[in-house]
Amino acid sequence: MAFRYGVIEGLYDQQNQWSWEARDAYVSFCTQKGFDFYIYAPKDDPYLREQWDQPWPESTFEAIKALGLKLQQSNVRFGMGLTPFNVRELNRENRQQLKEKIASINQLNPQILCILFDDFSNEVDCLARVQTEIAEFIAAESSAEQFIVVGTYYSKDPLLQRVYGAMPENYWSDLGQSLDSRFDIFWTGDHVISLGYDQTSLQEMTDHFRRKPFLWDNYPVNDTDWLKNRLRLYTFTGRPWQLSDWCSGHAVNPMIQPWLSMIPLATLSDLYQQKGQFDGHASFKSAARNLCGIELAAAIEENLICFTEEGTLNFSDFTRNRLKKTFSKFQSEAEQPFVREILSWLKQ
């Protein structure tokens, strides 16, 4: 399958959930920017994680179904991410529960199904083999056309081993060997939130996985406690266009703020389309103007350091009030989604 890039909604923040209006806005955004897919995988949807064995409320189910249909009608592939939380083996009970869950997901008709073993402990022997068995069981029940797995250890970041214990010896190689080649494998890089990627590190994981890694890129993510005070609005850096040769795909995880996330996400499209001609700063300026309008874009650029580097925790009352006054004056319908997010962020 050819290299493809798109969006994965992986927000992990119960207090800052995306609205269905925002998700609908991503249908046209992905279409306009040439994104191949949109994967619905918010970690604050309990029916994809801790309560995966329970059905969605009817209103939520219908909203997901409508989103998927809109995406597919716009030629953007629709994906979902399921975390079989606390399934440590396949027994009679959870096999039946998984069958029922996948039957429900099949009604939503995703073209991509992600099977996510991240962010919960898997204290079992032969971890890679067990996860492979679970993934293959789910895939056998699914009508999706593409499957992507996230392992428990999805990065070289020592944080994962501090939280989940020591990684089993040869885990990455065992996962790559046991998983059928039809599965892609997500990888966030040397860190959970990586500053960039290089060919040497990605080739190492290609050797382990026996296939090119599929990037789960946690930029411009800001849902961690140490990043909530920043708006990561700037262009993608540290990501050469040659990733399209080194990886099987590239999924980017946005911020708490869906509309403001569109600014950096738009630059990813430019990166892959312009390749060696890509100018990151010019791309940022163009994306901001096209999305926000000339005047609001200029105000965002003028205060970019405040958003991306200084952050609300370091603002003086003077700076906070100045920014509030600056952005409150933008009142047009097109400007308002972006301005509301800025003003809400300033209240932190």
Rank of each mutant, 00 (worst) to 15 (best):
Ala140Tyr: 08
Phe284Ala: 10
Gln97Glu: 07
Pro158Glu: 00
Asp44Leu: 07
Ser142Gly: 09
Ser283Arg: 10
Met262Tyr: 11
Gln107Glu: 08
Thr60Tyr: 15
Trp187Phe: 05
Gln51Ile: 05
Asn94Val: 01
Gly196Trp: 03
Met255Val: 05
Trp345Tyr: 12
Thr312Asp: 08
Asn222Ser: 10
Leu69His: 12
Thr319Ser: 06
Gly68Asn: 06
Ala266Leu: 03
His191Ser: 08
Glu93Lys: 09
Glu133Asn: 05
Ser155Val: 01
Ala25Ile: 07
Glu133Gly: 10
Phe330Ser: 00
Ser104Val: 11
Lys65Trp: 12
Gly196Ala: 06
Thr319Trp: 06
Ser286Leu: 07
Pro220Lys: 03
Arg49Trp: 03
Arg88Asn: 13
Asp270Asn: 04
Ser104Trp: 11
Asp125Pro: 13
Cys306Met: 14
Pro110Cys: 04
Glu62Ile: 09
Ile102Glu: 06
Met1Asp: 13
Pro254Ala: 13
Ile39Lys: 06
Ala63Val: 05
Phe330Ala: 00
Tyr40Ile: 11
Ala266His: 02
Lys65Ala: 10
Ile138Arg: 02
Lys99Gln: 15
Phe307Arg: 03
Trp56Tyr: 12
Gly6Arg: 02
Asp270Ile: 02
Ser332Ala: 01
Met205Tyr: 07
Leu227Ile: 09
Leu113Ile: 04
Gln32Gly: 13
Ala288Asn: 05
Phe209Asp: 01
Phe186Ile: 02
Gly249Asn: 05
Phe327Ser: 04
Gln72His: 01
Trp172Asp: 08
Arg182Lys: 15
Thr31Ile: 07
Ile39Gly: 05
Gly6Tyr: 02
Ser201Ile: 01
Val221Asp: 03
Gln97Asp: 04
Leu271Asp: 04
Phe85Thr: 13
Asn290Ala: 04
Asp180Ala: 08
Lys101Tyr: 05
Arg77Phe: 01
Ile8Arg: 03
Ile294Asp: 08
Leu202Arg: 04
Ile112Arg: 00
Glu50Ala: 13
Leu304Asp: 07
Tyr164Leu: 08
Gly34His: 06
Glu62Leu: 14
Gln111Val: 07
His281Ile: 07
Val150Asn: 15
Gln146Pro: 07
Arg322Ala: 14
Arg182Asp: 14
Ala128Pro: 09
Glu341Gly: 00
Asn229Gly: 15
Thr200Gly: 08
Asp207Ser: 13
Ser142Trp: 10
Phe315Val: 10
Cys247Gly: 04
Asp53Leu: 14
Ser142Pro: 08
Ser59Glu: 12
Ile263Lys: 01
Leu304Met: 10
Gln131Leu: 10
Gly165Val: 13
Pro46Glu: 11
Asn218Phe: 07
Ile64Ala: 00
Asp279Ala: 09
Arg49Ile: 06
Asp36Tyr: 13
Gln54Arg: 02
Asn253Pro: 08
Ile112Trp: 01
Asn75His: 12
Thr31His: 13
Gly151Val: 02
Ile342Val: 05
Ile115Tyr: 01
Cys292His: 03
Gln17Pro: 15
Glu62Met: 12
Asn321Glu: 15
Lys329Ile: 10
Val150Pro: 09
Ser283Tyr: 10
Tyr38Val: 11
Glu89Leu: 15
Gln14Ala: 13
Lys325Gln: 14
Asn253Asp: 14
Ile305Asn: 15
Val163His: 04
Pro337Ile: 03
Cys247Pro: 03
Ala144Ser: 14
Tyr5Asp: 05
Ala140Arg: 03
Ile185Thr: 05
Arg340Ile: 01
Leu271Lys: 09
Leu304Tyr: 05
Thr237Ser: 15
Arg162Ser: 14
Asp118Tyr: 06
Thr206Glu: 15
Gln14Asn: 07
Thr206His: 14
Tyr272Asn: 00
Ala41Leu: 10
Ser283Val: 13
